[in-house]
Each structure stands twice: as structure tokens, then as C-alpha cells.
């Protein structure tokens, strides 16, 4: 019985370690809604994976990437307000995914676990998958950290100094897609963005540099996972929502620290 908790803890922390640093960029670049849209589209990825009997992790990564490319492409077209566009895509893809999954014959899928995560059912193989993807993502993020930070602060300035803007942005999209694919199991499609932005926002009040903020975000995210799982274990609350709730509580506490604001 204890291995259930252990695997859940390991997988949750593995995900939190990477959602923290990546989440800081989501916060700095004001992409919370963008992340939400990609997360919702991952449900469609699951549906596609089931239809064509592919590995669902891969089909989710693929679907998220395609959506990311569509979004970037559409953003160049300034005729539609960006948040309207994201709203349309976000909810359409979520609804589409739900409909496709429900319509599929011979497949019984637990919708609740897709929407809100199912951390307590992860097995050893899942844990390994989480750590492989997290490690790859973290290494890639370290690689593009400086140029990504440069274009986040000022795109024109960064590009003038020679940052390969399109390549870096594309890598960043890929990282978001990878993280969504692993975070889905932990908190579910609907709550992924919270794991990206809440720890990062919480870390803000304790940080003086971008790197500190990324590090603290990892730490705070991991702590939220521990707190949430403890609650889930002892008072039998759903794991994913408990983790998000813990993160929210930590954020509230951080508001009392005004030192670095």
C-alpha cells in the first residue's frame, strides 16, 4: 500500500520540479491562458491516441505542439483579439475531446481522472516516464534559458543582439507540450496551468533574480505535492485538486512577504 503513496510522491515531485521553472516563463510572458488552451487540447490528444491506438503520451505531445503552432500562427494575424482567440480554441478543443472520447465504442475512459488527474494510480513505469521527460525538459530549458529570458525582457533588443528568436520560441513551445503531457496524470487537464503558474507566482515574493525564482518555484511546487498527497492520504480528498489547493494556500502565505515586491 505504501508504494502507491511512494510512486505518487515521486511522480508528483518529478513533475513539480519542471513545472516550476517553466511556469516562471508562463508568468513573465503572460501566457497563462495560452497554457490553458494547450492543456485543454491535450484531451483531444488522448482521444486521438485511443482512436489510432498510439502511445497517449506521444499523441498528447504531438497534439499540443500542433495547437501551439496554430496559436502562434494565428497570433500574427492581429484581426482577432488574442484572448478571444485563445478562449475559442481552448473550450472548443476541450469540448471536442470530451465528445470524441464519449463517442468511442468499446472504450471505457474515466473522464474524472482525465480532467482532474489520477496521481494515486501511477505505477513504476509512469514514474520512470515522468523523470525521463522532466530531465529532458530541464536540460533543454537550461540550454535556452538566457536567450529566452532576453527575448522575454525585450524581443527587439534580444533579436538585435543575435537571439535566434523563432528557434527559441519553438523550443519553448515544445517544452510546454512535454510538460503538459506529464503533468496531465498528476493534476488532470483542467488544473495543469495551476501547477505552472501558482508555484511561480508564489516564488516571486522570495526571489531577487530569475534563477532564484525558478528554483523556489520547483521547491514550492514539490512542497505542494507533498501537502496535497498527505491530505489525500489522511482525509481522503482527491489528490490533484488537493495539490492545487495546497499550492494556492502557499501562494496566500507568500503574499504576507512584501520584501522583494
Amino acid at each position: 500500500m505504501i508504494d502507491v503513496l511512494l510512486f505518487a510522491l515521486l511522480a508528483g515531485i518529478g513533475v513539480a520540479l519542471i513545472t516550476g521553472p517553466l511556469g516562471t516563463f508562463i508568468v513573465w510572458r503572460r501566457m497563462a491562458y495560452f497554457g490553458d488552451t494547450l492543456a485543454h487540447s491535450s484531451l483531444l490528444g488522448i482521444a486521438l491516441g485511443l482512436i489510432f491506438s498510439l502511445n497517449t503520451t506521444l499523441s498528447v505531445i504531438f497534439t499540443c505542439l500542433v495547437f501551439a503552432l496554430i496559436l502562434v500562427g494565428l497570433e500574427q494575424n492581429k484581426n482577432l483579439a488574442s484572448d478571444t482567440l485563445l478562449g475559442i480554441l481552448s473550450h472548443t478543443s476541450l469540448a471536442f475531446g470530451l465528445v470524441v472520447i464519449t463517442l468511442m465504442p468499446n472504450v471505457k475512459v474515466d473522464l474524472m481522472s482525465l480532467l482532474f488527474g489520477d496521481l494515486l494510480t501511477v505505477n513504476f513505469k509512469d514514474v520512470i516516464t515522468v523523470y525521463i521527460i522532466s530531465t529532458i525538459t530541464l536540460l533543454m530549458l537550461v540550454k535556452i534559458w538566457d536567450p529566452l529570458l532576453a527575448i522575454t525582457i525585450d524581443e527587439d533588443l534580444g533579436r538585435t543582439e543575435g537571439v535566434k528568436f523563432k528557434l527559441v520560441r519553438m523550443m519553448f513551445m515544445l517544452l510546454i507540450a512535454l510538460v503538459i503531457a506529464v503533468a496531465m496524470k498528476v493534476v488532470g487537464v483542467l488544473l495543469i496551468t495551476s501547477l505552472l503558474i501558482i508555484p511561480a507566482a508564489t516564488a516571486r515574493s522570495y526571489s531577487k533574480t530569475p534563477e532564484q525564482m525558478a528554483f523556489f518555484a520547483s521547491l514550492i511546487g514539490s512542497f505542494s505535492v507533498v501537502l496535497g498527497l498527505l491530505a489525500s492520504w489522511f482525509i481522503d480528498t482527491p489528490a490533484g485538486p488537493s495539490i492545487v489547493l495546497s499550492a494556492g494556500l502557499l501562494f496566500l502565505i507568500s503574499l504576507t512577504n512584501k520584501k522583494n515586491q
Partner: peptide
């Protein structure tokens, strides 16, 4: 290049 103004999000701590 010196841009007109930097719009750094206030959530980004940087020295």
C-alpha cells in the same frame, strides 16, 4: 540598440 522603453513584467525579478 537602445529600445524606447522596457516593459518588464513586474513578476520578473532581475538585477
Amino acid at each position: 540598440y537602445m529600445p524606447q522603453k522596457l516593459h518588464i513584467d513586474q513578476t520578473l525579478p532581475i538585477t
